[in-house]
């Protein structure tokens, strides 16, 4: 218990550059299930309707997006990030990643076959 507290605060003490003392990471994401992960985090950029948004740049729509046909592509984007998408490998459990990938591939007008598994996510951690 004590060890855990110290570790957490060690991270907290790292100055987040222009940020303050605290916490570049914060408490682990607690939400369970693909929809909860999407609503809790992903819709911050991809929006509640998964249609993305556009300003100087674009957050791509996940709704009716043919790129989601390949679950490996979606898994890799969530884990590793690319072109503005941050990597989430350090933020989500394998279950959270698999669940949210399966959620977006089966909602918002997407009906793609095949399910991502926790083992698929784990393979990307090797």
């Amino acid at each position: 218990m004590m060890r855990k507290i110290i570790l957490a605060t060690l991270l907290m003490a790292l100055p987040a550059s222009a940020a303050d003392t605290p916490d570049m990471r914060g408490a682990p994401f607690a939400m369970q299930g693909g929809e909860a992960v999407y609503r809790g985090v992903c819709q911050g950029c991809h929006m509640a309707d998964a249609k993305g948004a556009s300003g100087a740049g674009t957050y791509p729509a996940l709704a009716a997006n043919p790129k989601l046909a390949e679950s490996g592509y979606v898994l890799s984007m969530v884990m590793n990030g690319h072109r503005g998408m941050p990597p989430f490998r350090g933020h989500f459990t394998n279950a959270q990643v698999a669940d949210v990938v399966n959620f977006v591939r089966s909602h918002f007008g997407n009906h793609y076959k095949g399910k991502a598994t926790e083992a698929d996510v784990q393979a990307l951690r090797q």
Binding site: A16, P22, D23, G26, P28, F29, G40, G44, C45, H91
Partner: peptide, 11 residues
């Protein structure tokens, strides 16, 4: 706030 709390807030 930065990090995870900021992700949650952005959503």
């Amino acid at each position: 706030t930065f990090g995870r709390p900021a992700y949650l807030a952005a959503a």
